[in-house]
């Protein structure tokens, strides 16, 4: 029995070896580099970075955009996940294909496509003028709205799929049981269905937020150089300015923020789930 267990443990060895080489070691190096001041090991680089009001603006940009993208994905993705779980036969296959196939298209291609859609003479602007929301075409490209909409399109499947995987396991008879006990549809949703989908929501939030907080190509193409996030600042520090110290610090701050937000949301979801 014991030997069986140790044998099973060895199955993880290739993955452990791979992750140690490509993830743990570079991450350790990155963290070490961020704590290497002019006179050896210190936190002086973090003090300098966090002491600059511009850094807080960059952190704010990063969290605000990631938060908006995540919320938009949740608002769109939650009902879609239900539609997908409840659909049957060809409809379900078509819906799944519509959600999964776009993942095979590169982010750069999608960003360029959004560039066309969001132009002043693009479909969004023309539609809003057509229905009378705008009197004349407005600029959407290189604005926060354009960035959030474009990024949500890219990350939406990562919200839908975890929620779908949970929803399809929910027994539909639970809602029927609630109805027989005289619970209103709204109460049935909030007291039965929503708490049961929380694990999927948390997974979706964690996926989308982690991806959105660290996105580099999408902001570079959809909002440009005049809107800095931690990821774009990190990329520029390493690739163009050859400032490894700043790049390591911004990358570490980004990592800490992403991990913290995911952990907090997970704890929050557990607590909400317990009370629901």
């Amino acid at each position: 029995m014991k030997s069986d267990r140790s044998l099973v443990g060895w199955l993880a060895a290739p993955a452990v070896f791979y992750l140690t080489i490509v993830y743990a070691l570079p991450l350790t190096w990155l963290l070490a580099r961020s704590m290497m001041g002019p006179e050896g090991f210190s936190l002086v680089l973090f003090e300098e970075f966090l002491g600059d009001p511009f850094s807080w603006r960059v952190i704010g940009n990063t969290l605000r955009i990631a938060g908006m993208v995540t919320i938009l994905c949740l608002l769109i993705g939650y009902p879609v996940a239900f539609a997908l779980a409840r659909a049957r036969g060809v409809v379900q296959v078509v819906l799944l294909a519509a959600i999964i196939l776009p993942l095979s298209i590169g982010v750069v291609v999608k960003a360029f496509a959004w560039q066309i859609v969001l132009r002043r003479d693009g479909v969004v602007s023309q539609f809003l003028v057509g229905i009378g929301v705008w009197s004349e075409p407005q600029r959407l490209l290189f604005t926060e709205i354009g960035l959030v909409v474009g990024a949500a399109n890219v990350f939406l499947p990562f919200m839908i799929l975890p929620i779908y995987s949970v929803v399809k396991l929910i027994d539909p008879r639970l809602m029927e049981a609630g109805a027989t006990l005289g619970v209103s549809p709204v109460s049935r949703f909030f007291r039965i269905l929503f708490p049961l989908t929380l694990p999927g929501i948390v997974s979706g939030l964690a996926f989308v937020f982690s991806l959105a907080v660290s996105m580099f190509v999408i902001p570079s193409l959809l909002i440009g150089d005049r809107f800095q996030t931690l990821a774009t600042l990190t990329g520029r520090s390493f690739l163009l300015m050859r400032n490894e110290a700043l790049g390591s610090v911004t990358a570490t701050v980004l990592l800490v923020l992403a991990v913290a937000i995911v952990l907090i949301s997970s704890l929050l979801a557990r607590r909400v789930g317990r009370f629901a």
Partner: peptide
């Protein structure tokens, strides 16, 4: 008057050629 400041030149020319 700025639409954007580019870091990728082909993107800038694409926007100009499209009239944006």
């Amino acid at each position: 008057n700025l639409l954007t400041a580019y870091s990728q030149m082909p993107q800038a020319f694409s926007l100009m050629e499209q009239g944006e």
